[in-house]
């Protein structure tokens, strides 16, 4: 990961900033300027709540380069409350506690470290929704 690439995606990584389509009113994440649902131009930034449910998940044993120290780790596709699906790691949960449909929320966490001279890459992960217990 280069610094320009990290900087360019900071709003997505740190605050799940997507877009809302002014034509069909659907939320779009990641942002892409042309609405994938109606084809109209969509440039209005909109942050997502970060809450959703697990659509599917996997426990990764064989990690790609840079992620080996963290294996095995959980990854998921999360269906956000506003509609879009987002792919991310799960955190603060053990593999046998995860199920499809489980409510989760976005947190900012370290994704990986790129060595002595490299970046510490932060981004979004999802954890079990804490508010559920407080209620």
């Amino acid at each position: 990961m280069t610094i320009p690439s990290y900087w360019r995606t900071r709003r997505q990584r740190l605050s799940l900033e997507g877009e809302i389509c002014p034509h069909c009113r659907r939320h779009v994440f990641p942002p892409r300027d042309i609405c994938p649902y109606c084809g109209g131009p969509a440039k209005a930034a909109a942050s997502l709540s970060g809450r959703g449910t697990v659509y599917s998940f996997s426990l990764v044993h064989n990690a790609p380069a840079g992620f080996e120290p963290y294996a095995p780790y959980l990854v998921a596709i999360v269906k956000l409350d506003e509609g879009p699906l987002v792919t991310a790691q799960l955190t603060d949960v053990s593999p046998d506690e995860v199920s499809i449909g489980m409510p989760v929320e976005m947190v900012t966490r370290k994704l990986r470290e790129e060595g002595e001279e490299g970046l510490i890459v932060y981004g979004y992960k999802f954890r079990p929704l804490l508010q559920a217990e407080a209620l």
């Binding site: 990961m1 690439s5 995606t9 997505q12 990641p30 659509y55 599917s56 998940f57 996997s58 990764v60 064989n62 990690a63 790609p64 840079g66 992620f67 963290y70 780790y73 990854v75 998921a76 596709i77 987002v86 792919t87 991310a88 790691q89 499809i100 994704l111 990986r112 890459v121 981004g123």
Partner: peptide, 24 residues
Amino acid sequence: DLFESDQGISFVALNAMLMRRYMH
């Protein structure tokens, strides 16, 4: 690259999530 691989998602993991959802 930006929104799947960068999260530590291997190509196998993507297919794994399809398979789990299919089984479900």
